[in-house]
Design a protein around this nucleic acid. Structure first.
Length: 591
RNA sequence: GGUCCCGUGGUGCAGCGGCCUAGCAUACGUCCCUGUCAAGGACGAGAUCGCCGGUUCGAAUCCGGUCGGGACCGCCA
């Protein structure tokens, strides 16, 4: 090695040692005949000093060095003179008196500050990610990710799980997200797809008797990225044979509790984690990933307004819908603009509108007050529990639409009005999901994945009945602070049942046999009852580190349009390669 | 596919019709300085305000388009 020590480890006890350090110039403080340099590496910073009197050659080299030059410094560790120690640095009691300085590499002036926490445009950061990674914050996140990943991996390996890498080139499957695709050379016109998750493969591993499987798996989804969504996500993928829902939940809860207790800045709010049914989550919070860090739970006004003359509500109720509402404390004075803003959120989730009732003194202010009797308005107040000065917001629609839209308003208000208690992390399980949900066009879609099994015998009967919408799933979701961190289920391990689930989803036996042939076949060769879970590592890191976006958690992020500023990718292919692959580009990129 | 926000020396920001010959901080360069640690001091270089077009006597500033970035909707089992 070109060094004997790192820049973070020398202490007063090392005084007198001759050491060699190597690293980057963090800062230079030149006093003329005495010059200091903070030499930085991953481990820390160490002050290097040289003076004209002591070692003129080393001194000249330090004077000439510039920010981010790479230096190798040989010298003697010595305690700093009384009164010049730096308590801010772990190495602040000592300095290295340089006797020899070798410039390992010079560096251009960096495109942004390495030694300051100033925000920098992401395009620049990703383009010069190798400079950005030297910054303390970026470096700490890489370390955090490494430590969390390894803790989780060890946790499962110690408990008898085998880490198995599944293939990255699989068959495209039109369900779910858009696939990233890889053309085949031997089979012109045919393509592999990169896995959106190793779901089918891990189930097949269970049929293979692997019994307990774990993988920190990369998954690819070609959907527009968001703050918490990236093209290449990493998931903790776990599968266990002969497991029941509680077994999976218990082991993940144990693992995540350990991870949070070691790495999170805040304690967990409750242990063991609360479990909430999907129905309760929708009823109380209007979400299947409720943010329980603040109260302001939904109230239901359907009953008390069942005879209302207000046509919008009356019609919705007549059609079997519900009036779902929220009491916003102290916001009777909300402006029209505020309310319009919240209405826009509700509308984006399918509500037709948002009705407000402002209670101040004995007065009720509402744009639709004239449609309600005094008695009804009084009951809106008493049923909702609105106090003087409170605002009630209400939405009428089909129950789930009404709940989700007002639930989204609740989520927004929690942030906006700073109702969220940020002192702890709220980890919880949501369970007893329906197996299927209706799309807007009336077709059934799965709520978790097409392989999730029914909760029990009774729900298996519902699955095979005329009303599969009644069937509850074995699904369980991990929710932390209102974010869905993961989900899993006990899988269907019987071909007939799997085909029935496909049937409900509109996938015929024939189509199912083509798309999911391997899995269906495997179910006929002694597939054990089994289940598992997948959790999002990127989101987990976001929550642990309190980040606003997932890009920061990975080493080489892309932009919102999937462009990689570092590698300038994607890029056009050579004509020769295209020819080999049997491809012709019909839409050329702009030159 | 859509909505909103942003684009000004290397970086981060200010300026939002004429007072801009574009301001501040920092970085950068030269010089001074033997105990600093966000060192200090002096001097200096560096931007036609993303790009194109329009309005106007006059545009960084207003309008339209376009490109790039971000947040969101759609989409994401």
């Amino acid at each position: 090695m070109l060094r004997t020590h790192t820049a973070g480890e020398l202490r007063a006890a090392d005084s007198g040692k001759t050491v060699t350090l190597a690293g980057w110039v963090d800062r230079r403080r030149d006093h003329g005949d005495v010059t200091f340099i903070d030499l930085r590496d991953r481990y820390g910073k160490t002050q290097i000093v040289a003076s004209a009197a002591e070692r003129s050659r080393a001194h000249v080299a330090l004077k000439d060095a510039r920010s981010e030059w790479v230096l190798q410094v040989r010298g003697t560790v010595r305690p700093r003179p009384e009164g010049t120690r730096n308590p801010k640095l772990p190495t602040g009691d000592i300095e290295v008196a340089a006797t020899e300085v070798v410039v390992l590499n010079e560096a251009k002036t960096p495109p942004f500050y390495v030694n300051e926490e100033t925000p920098v445009d992401e395009n620049l950061r990703w383009k010069y990610r190798y400079v950005d990674l030297r910054r303390e914050r970026s470096k700490d996140l890489m370390r955090l990710r490494s430590e969390v990943t390894n803790m989780i991996r060890n946790f499962f390996v110690e408990r008898g799980f085998w880490e198995i890498e599944t293939t990255m080139m699989i068959r495209s499957d039109p369900t779910g997200a858009r696939d990233f695709v890889v053309p085949s050379r031997y089979y012109p016109g045919k393509f592999w797809a990169l896995p959106q998750s190793p779901q089918q493969l891990k189930q097949i591993l269970m049929v293979g008797g692997i019994d307990k499987y774990v993988q920190i798996a990369r998954c690819f989804r070609d959907e527009d990225p968001r703050a918490d969504r990236i093209y290449e996500l990493t998931q903790l993928d776990v599968e266990m044979s002969f497991a029941e829902p509680g077994d999976v939940m218990t082991i993940i809860e144990e693992c995540y509790t350990a991870v949070f207790e070691r790495f999170a800045a805040k304690p967990l709010h409750q242990k063991p984690w609360p479990r909430m049914t999907y129905d309760d989550a929708m009823r109380r919070f209007g979400s299947d990933r409720p943010d329980t860090r603040f109260a302001m739970e939904l109230v239901d006004l359907t009953e008390i307004l069942s005879a209302t003359g207000f046509a919008v509500f009356k019609d919705a109720i007549a059609q079997g819908g519900a009036v779902r509402a929220l009491v916003v404390p102290g916001k009777a004075d909300a402006s029209r603009k505020d309310i319009d803003g919240w209405a826009a959120i509700a509308k984006a989730r399918g509500a037709k509108g948002l009705v407000s009732f402002a209670f101040s003194g004995s007065e009720v202010k509402s744009p639709v007050a004239k449609f309600f009797s005094a008695d009804e308005l009084a009951r809106v107040r008493s049923t909702s529990g609105a106090k003087d000065g409170d605002l009630v917001l209400a939405v009428a629609a089909e129950y789930r639409v009404a709940s989700r839209s007002i639930g989204e308003v609740r989520r927004q208000l929690g942030e906006e009005l700073r109702l969220v208690d940020g002192s702890t992390h709220h980890a919880m399980w949501i369970h007893r999901f329906p197996m299927f949900e209706r799309e807007l066009d009336g077709r059934w879609t799965f709520s978790h994945n097409p392989f999730a099994g029914p909760l029990d015998e009774e729900n298996a009967k519902h699955l095979f009945s005329d009303d599969p919408g009644k069937a509850l799933s074995s699904q369980y979701d991990l929710v932390v602070d209102g974010n869905e961190l993961g989900g899993g289920s006990i899988r269907i391990h019987n071909r007939k049942m799997q085909e029935r689930a496909f049937e409900v989803l509109g996938i015929s036996k024939e189509v199912g046999a083509i798309r999911f042939g391997a899995l269906l076949d495997a179910l006929e060769y002694g597939a054990p009852p089994e289940g598992g879970i997948a959790t999002g590592m990127d989101r987990t890191l976001m929550i642990l580190a309190g980040l606003a976006n997932a890009r920061e958690t990975i080493a080489f992020p892309k932009t919102q349009t999937g462009y990689d500023p570092l590698l300038d990718a994607p890029a056009a292919l050579d004509d020769v390669l295209l020819e080999e692959l049997g491809l012709r580009v019909i839409r050329k990129p702009p030159a």
